[in-house]
Amino acid sequence: MEQNQETKQTTKSENWEPRIMAFLCNWCSYAGADLAGVSRIQYPPNIRVIRVPCSGRIDPIFVLRCLQSGYDGVLVSGCHPGDCHYISGNYVARRKFVALRAILNFLGIEPGRVQFSWVSAGEGEKFSEVIKKVTDDVKKLGPASRLVKKD
């Protein structure tokens, strides 16, 4: 019985693929992902996308909820500085991300788990690069255990 469970776990970890939540802003990163798609650029299928109006819409609680519910990584992506559809959404978001990142690192959540990027609507190639990097980083870290809510 015990052995059975062990073998189960090893096969599970061998086939393990990370689940990553990506918050993409409607005006740049989401369009960038779209461009990657229509240009047939390949990237790992580990991300689940949530479209948000602006990176400024991201409340740190969104990121924490993802980690709580068992996502292994979170990516937040918005427009490049100066390109925000709402003029200053990403500037304010940037300061918020500084605080969120600092606090997570200090608590002992690996820095690779929560990542940030700027991807414009024309950067399909960069979008795929970002996803590749995030997926690689999270794969190296392994399944998330800290902050995951266990019943």
Binding site: P81, Y91, R95, P111, S117, V130
Partner: peptide, 16 residues
């Protein structure tokens, strides 16, 4: 407060 405002040219070393 710092988190209620911003400057355009800020260090963003952690953002891809």
């Amino acid at each position: 407060p710092a988190l209620c405002t911003y400057k355009e040219d800020e260090k963003q070393d952690f953002i891809m």
